[in-house]
Amino acid sequence: MLSSNIMPYAQSNIFSKTGEQEEAAGASGFAIEARNLSIHYSAFRAVKNVDMAIPERKITAIIGPSGCGKSTVLRSFNRMNDLVPGAHAEGDVIFMGQNIYAPQVDPVEVRRRIGMVFQKPNPFPRSIYENVAWGARLNGFKVGLGRPSMDEWVENCLRKAALWDEVKDKLNQSGLSLSGGQQQRLCIARAIAIQPQIILMDEPASALDPIATLKVEELMQELARDYTIIVVTHNMQQAARVSDQTAFFTVDADRAGMLVEFGDTRQIFTNPKDSRTEGYISGKYG
């Protein structure tokens, strides 16, 4: 751990593509694909043998009982789990034709392509403007002839996050001064400001009131035109409302989370193939 912290990274640039990023995705039509993925926290296997291929520019929902490993799987898609001491993944996660767990891959590069929105809104204690601009500037946002200025870009992202009208007069105020729902949309604006291909959302509305939840859900559908969205939710109505595809996870007898069923949302909710899915949905949905 110690030595790896100061080891120079392999200068991999494998995900950097110049030009239009949207067309760069693999020909498979899948944005990201888990292959026989198992994730451990030290000795504890939290998730086992997940196989799922997530379609591009669709909303994929992950549902399941608490503790079944939804967040764990989601966080393994942009190597966020690397930050947990003792966590490690087995199997492959294929993104743009490459396994993001291959040794030469730089997790920073992965996260820069696959953004994340968290359960509790977590804006930086900086101005609203800086919250959006920081990530873009960090990642080498280019200004110049024919390109948007940073101000224009911030405005664009805030508009896309449906927040512009509410904050355009107070861009210099702290991001923490906003309401919970506004903060969460600020976090979404912040995520899209670095132009990721995929946005991971971990129960993005669970800390919000119903009206704010509705706004975030609308926003997700809007964003799905340009981005692949994977959203974890414990709210099955939400999954049914917003998602195109749904994955149902549960805990196996050995306490490891596992993928039970993955398919078209309408099919999962109306005609589940697995009795466990049906039990879960009818128990909670009915």
Partner: peptide, 22 residues
């Protein structure tokens, strides 16, 4: 909600090698 889409020609410099070395 209906802001300009991704019509902006946005570009990012590859900055990571420099950032990693610092």
């Amino acid at each position: 909600m209906n802001g300009p889409g991704l019509s902006f020609p946005v570009e990012f410099d590859p900055t990571l090698p420099r950032r990693h070395s610092s």
